[in-house]
Design a protein around this nucleic acid. Structure first.
Lengths: 211, 211
DNA sequence: CGGGAAGTTGATATAACTCAAGGTAGGTGG
DNA sequence: CCACCTACCTTGAGTTATATCAACTTCCCG
């Protein structure tokens, strides 16, 4: 179930690069093909990553293959936080992706890192509200709004993920994702030029749906 | 829906108390009656709290009153982390509760604080898997296991929360909570001496249910 | 002892899932 | 350059898990 075809994980380390003003020193730039594994659950946790371009999914699996995507990360965002010595989640590129490997300051003493970690926690908890208490249309609406905001509030939203990814993020099947996108389209709230490109016609209507 | 009767919020500040060895200096001990508000969504965020005794729920509301409990906190645990200047959630005592107000070191530079924040994020993301991808029995089983582990793996689990709280935590109705507790009881996996006191007869069976 | 909130159980309704059949689009090889 | 192939997506029909509505029970607490 939800089998993700194994990725051709060709990652190339670019020469180290240091910037003095940044709270974490970007060093290595690493390239990932689409659908490549960045790290796996159980692996020893390593550095943080900032996405230069591309998109990443963070997920976890149940024994029978059910999958929960806990987060999508887009260009400019940082991921890789872990509580323990080992990764609790899988991270995979969804499209061709360039990551900058960040060097963690010793002792995690950066207030900026703290802020990033806290923002991650808040985002997870807000997503919990969506998944736990909203119905299918509301979830899809919330997802589209989130993607729109994170892409600069443009009315054209690019979806770097498949319907399976969206379903596993929103806790529903791909059919339900598809049906509810169609519903929003029929109501004139969105247009769907291509399956990976959504035009938000009435953002206010989407916001009203999210209660 | 899910109206929670307003709380008699009598909180008394005890004299300040300092300990030198702790990474955060416990200062004030504050008492809360059952069902009292500790902080509200939108309020300016303040200190962290460590629970001396009692139990706290953290939740968020939708416009129509639907509620998602994002976390329960028990004695010994720390809560109150916020990403911005204002609280994103409500915090309420569920039973009579004593909180120690913690003084945040300037700049949030403590690695221990960071660890606590990260653990909170991981816990939220793991809960996302439960709510997003598990069915009713599995959710109830996961909840009971979690409560058991956090109470020292004793087979007697005390539930400081109502069925409404459990339902709003697991993303289901109180009837479904009740029916699935009954199901586990009929299968001999748990006993229910009183509604707030569950005996875990077969912890292995619960674990098997969580896949 | 009485009243009310909390919890349980039953009957029915419904939203989302499952299974199934097309449709579409992007990539590859002839 | 075109046609095929495959993966992704959409739509439809029927099923099912959970919600809803309702009645009843239990347990506090005054």
């Amino acid at each position: 179930m939800h089998a993700n075809a194994l990725a051709t994980s060709r990652s190339i380390h670019a020469p180290a690069m240091l910037t003095s003003h940044s709270f974490v020193r970007p060093q290595l730039l690493t390239y990932f093909a689409a659908e490549a594994e960045i790290y796996a659950q159980g692996e020893q946790s390593g550095p943080l990553y900032r996405i230069e371009y591309g998109a990443v999914r963070i997920y976890r699996l149940l024994g029978d293959g059910r999958r929960q995507v806990v987060a999508f990360h887009l260009a400019g965002e940082t991921f890789g936080f872990e509580a323990g010595r080992n990764h609790s989640f899988f991270a995979e590129s969804m499209v061709q992706t360039g990551l900058r490997v960040l060097d963690r300051p010793t002792g995690d003493q950066s207030p900026d890192l703290m802020a990033l970690a806290l923002r991650g926690m808040i985002r997870a908890q807000e997503h919990l509200l969506v998944v736990g208490r909203q119905n299918a249309v509301e979830r899809v609406a919330a997802f589209l709004l989130d993607m729109m905001e994170r892409q600069g509030d443009l009315d054209q939203v690019e979806l770097p993920m498949t319907r399976i990814d969206i379903g596993d993020y929103l806790g529903m099947t791909i059919e339900t994702v598809s049906r509810n996108l169609a519903k929003l389209r029929k109501e004139g709230i969105i247009r769907i030029p291509t399956s990976r490109n959504i035009e938000i016609v009435k953002p206010a209507a989407l916001r009203r749906l999210c209660a």
